[in-house]
Each structure stands twice: as C-alpha cells, then as structure tokens.
Amino acid sequence: MRLLTFVQNGGGERLGALAGDGGIVDLAARDASPAFVSMQALIEGGAEALAAAGRLVTQAAETIDPAGVRWLAPLPRPAQMRDFLVFEEHMRMAGWQGAKLRATWGGPPAPPEPMPVPPIWYEQPIYYKGNRFAVAGSSTIDWPAGSKVIDYELELACVIGRGGRDIAARDAHAHIFGYTIFNDLTARDWQFREMQGPLGPAKGKDFDGANVLGPVIVTADEFGNAPALAMRAYVNGELWSEGNSGTMHWSWGQLIEHVSRAETLHPGEVLGSGTVGGGCGLELGRFLRHDDVIALEIERIGRIETRIRAPHVPERLTL
C-alpha cells in the first residue's frame, strides 16, 4: 500500500492511501476509527489497522484527484529521526571532498586521494539523531541566511512499525512499517565548522525543512527483506546522482539490531540510510544555488521535489 498525508481546501492534515487508479482514498472519511486520524495513529494501530486500511482502499468507489491537494511529508512528525552512514563510496568520497572544501576556506591542503575509511565504520553502524520537527514534503525551502554552501543528500529511509528492544537482525523485518525517500538537506559550511568540535552534526542539518520525506510511505510488504532500489537525483532536470540501495554495507536488520541494543525502538521512528555513493553535491564537487529544484527519485516509491530559496547564494560553488 502507498500511504500519504495531505491537505485539501485549506483543511487539516488527512491520512490517505493511493488507489489503483492513482486517486487518493481519504481513510478517515470512510471510517471514523482512531487509527485513521494520522499516519502515526495508523502505524501504532499495527497489522489490524493496516489491514482495515487496505479494505477501505479496495472498496472505495470514488477517489480524490491527487493534483487537487497539497502533499505533506507522509509522516509529518516522526517519533524520532536517526540517519546512518552505510554506503562505503559516500564515506570515502565525502571525507576527501570535504577536505577540499575546507582547503578553500584556508584549511590544510586536501590529500591527493581519498583517505582510508576509519575502522570503526566497519565494526558498527554509525548514525546521528536528526531534528524530527524539521520535516517537510515537496516544497520550497528557505535556506538559512548565514549559510552559503547548499547541498542535498539522496537517501532511502525506513519507518519503524512495531517497537521493541534488543531486536535481532533476523527478526527486524517484522518491525518495519515501510519505506520512503529522504532528502537530507545540509548546510555544508555550518556542518564542517561545528563538527570540528568534534560533535554534531547539528545546525548544519537541523534548520526548518531540512528533512524532506515523501511522497508516500510504501508498506514493507511491497518489498523483500533487502530492497535493492534504483536511486536518482536531478537538479533542474539534469541527472546529477545515480545509485542503488542494494549497495548498503549494513542491512536494515543490522541497523535495527544496533539501534535497539539496550534501547527501546518506538513506532513511527525514521531511520535514514545515509547518502548513496555519489548522491550529494559534495561528492560531485558542485553545490546548489538560489532557485534550484532538486528532484529525488527512488524506484517503486516515487519522486520528491525541493526548490531552494536562497537569494544570498546567486552563484553555484564548485570545487
């Protein structure tokens, strides 16, 4: 099933599902169950609520034109956001290109080739916690006035359906509600400055609208345990990035096992894969500017678009 959150005619948030004809089924309009009040409520409702939603979609005789509503992030306020770094190519190239960027600001010269990946990266999954209140769907994002290095990150995200603690990797698939696209917008100048701390990232990724999710959550039953999906990023219609989620070094099961070790994982948490190899401007040595439109596509999920409003960044920075 393909699930979304939308607004119609200036009303409040509505939980929807896409029917076979592409139209939207307003679930709460067909059933007053508390499970259909929001995406979070549906997730917390478990398998029974999801099955009931499926029946409503099948029985719907009329649907809403998707062009006549405003699409929000499918899960507007996740219970928690964690973003991993599971693609080896990104790990290697982002560090090297980051050194080049810092050199342009007067830092030490970058090494002539990518640096070795730190051993800890192969020993356990690495992640940070993001700002769950900074979520947006396809929209225009006002870039922070103090930042001039604008970047996108092409990621796949999984949404936790059933919580738990000390979940074994072999059992983790049963805890996944579904998958969505994640554009982890990043103010690279802020990020590299603050992470000299060495803590973070924080302000470099936590500004309003920085966590772009959508357009739908596709439920886990539509995929196998390890979905290998084609991933692409376009800037103003030009293909910039291309990769595949099947190149993840750590599996979703391993990520869930790691997070839930001695810590309870809750329904509605979002886990980002981190950037696919070549999936950001930093790796490519070129960044975004005012009025750029970034479109991320992931096979079998869809497409999200973000327009950057940053009149203080009229030119494209390149390395």
Rank of each mutant, 00 (worst) to 15 (best):
M1W: 10
R2Q: 13
R2N: 11
F6S: 00
G11Q: 01
G12A: 13
A17C: 13
A17M: 09
A17D: 10
A19S: 13
A19Y: 09
D21Q: 08
G22T: 05
G22H: 08
I24M: 04
D26S: 01
D26C: 07
D31I: 04
S33H: 11
P34F: 05
V37N: 10
S38Q: 05
S38A: 04
M39T: 03
L50S: 08
G54P: 11
R55T: 12
V57N: 10
T58I: 08
P66I: 00
G68R: 12
G68P: 05
W71E: 06
W71N: 08
L72A: 08
L72V: 02
P74Q: 06
R77A: 12
R77T: 11
P78S: 03
Q80M: 04
M81Q: 12
M81L: 15
V86W: 00
R92G: 00
R92P: 07
R92E: 02
G95Y: 01
K100R: 15
R102L: 04
R102K: 13
W105T: 06
G107I: 05
P109R: 08
P109G: 03
P111Q: 02
P112F: 02
E113R: 14
P114E: 08
M115H: 08
P118M: 06
I120K: 15
E123Y: 09
P125H: 14
P125K: 14
Y128I: 13
K129M: 10
R132E: 11
F133T: 10
V135H: 00
V135R: 04
G137A: 06
T140M: 09
A145L: 03
Y152G: 11
L156D: 14
C158Y: 03
I160L: 09
G161H: 03
R162H: 15
R162P: 12
G164C: 04
R165D: 09
R165I: 14
A169K: 12
R170C: 14
F177K: 01
N183L: 11
L185F: 15
T186E: 12
A187Y: 00
A187F: 02
D189I: 07
R193Q: 12
E194T: 00
G200Y: 10
G200P: 04
P201H: 11
P201N: 13
A202P: 01
K205I: 15
D206V: 05
L213K: 06
G214K: 06
I217L: 03
T219W: 07
A220K: 00
N225L: 06
A230E: 00
R232V: 05
Y234T: 01
V235M: 06
W240L: 06
N244S: 05
T247E: 14
M248D: 11
M248P: 14
M248S: 15
W250A: 13
Q254F: 15
Q254W: 14
I256D: 03
I256S: 03
E257P: 14
T264G: 06
H266I: 07
H266V: 10
G268I: 00
E269R: 09
E269Q: 12
G272T: 00
V276D: 04
V276W: 00
G277L: 01
C280W: 02
F287H: 05
L288I: 11
L288T: 07
L288D: 07
R289K: 15
D292P: 06
D292E: 12
V293I: 11
I294L: 10
I294S: 02
L296E: 04
L296A: 09
E297G: 11
E299R: 03
I301C: 15
G302F: 05
R307S: 01
R307D: 04
I308Y: 01
R309T: 00
A310W: 08
A310R: 01
P311C: 01
P311W: 08
E315A: 13
